[in-house]
């Protein structure tokens, strides 16, 4: 029998479902599989049709797929009991347990977003134009700008998703703490004035709001500020 010889030539072991698959076989079977499902892709090309006409293994595979498909389609239809009442009750109980976010909590988030916006507005000249004030070199201006933008992004990220507030807290705390401490020392030494350092108040406000948010998150599932993104669930 010729097929026995073919087995012996190409597959010394008794063949199984995968049937000594090579790359041609894999492509042919993907096309066959799509055809069974009525899908256009991957398409049945001429080369694949030739392979199928020639390959014993794929012919057996095709037979097996038809049997498998019939079997799955026959077994998968099964009526289930209607569990709507239980499911609805569970959903309603879940929703009544989720209070809408407190207005104060919402305010903190919007405040944080506002701090981010203010921070960004102030820093744009330094970042883009490289102009952080008289006598500051361009390179230093840009670094200053990048650092402040990073702070603003941190505020914004926490405003959008309050669970991030806790993580951002140490970084922002260190930055604002240093800024404020050094501003006080410098103005005491007469190297600057407190008025000149007032923009740092934005950073301080941001840090304070962040701290409030980080504390609040543990107590209450956060509501979300709507984001222009694909519907996701957490």
């Amino acid at each position: 029998m010729r097929w026995t010889n073919r087995w012996n030539r190409r597959a010394p072991n008794p063949p199984t479902g995968r049937l000594a698959e090579d790359d041609d076989c894999a492509a042919a079977r993907a096309a066959l599989s799509a055809q069974v499902d009525g899908e256009p892709e991957p398409a049945m090309t001429e080369a694949i049709a030739e392979h199928l006409a020639d390959c014993q293994y794929c012919a057996v595979w095709q037979e097996s797929v038809h049997r498998l498909t019939r079997r799955v389609r026959l077994t998968s239809a099964r009526a289930l009991p209607d569990r709507t009442p239980q499911l609805l009750a569970a959903v309603l109980a879940d929703q009544s347990g989720r209070r809408p976010a407190r207005p104060a909590y919402r305010l903190v988030r919007w405040g944080l977003a506002a701090a981010a916006a203010a921070q960004l507005l102030i820093i744009i000249p330094a970042l883009i134009l490289g102009d952080a004030g008289a006598g500051v070199p361009v390179q230093a201006s840009r670094e200053l700008g990048a650092f402040n933008v990073a702070l603003a992004v941190g505020y914004l990220a926490a405003a959008l998703r309050p669970t991030r507030a806790r993580g951002a807290l140490p970084l922002v705390g260190a930055a604002t703490g240093l800024l404020v401490g050094l501003a006080i020392i410098d103005s005491a030494l007469g190297q600057t004035t407190l008025t000149a350092e007032t923009p740092h108040l934005i950073a301080v406000a941001g840090w304070a709001l962040l701290a409030v948010l980080a504390k609040g998150v543990g107590e209450e599932p956060p509501g979300r500020i709507k984001r222009p993104r694909r519907a996701t669930v957490t």
Partner: peptide, 24 residues
Amino acid sequence: GTIGSRVARARSDLIQALERGTPR
């Protein structure tokens, strides 16, 4: 297309599993 190749591979594996033990 990725779904297509996963379905094809799943079919191969299922066929193999279903026919395991059946003398070829």
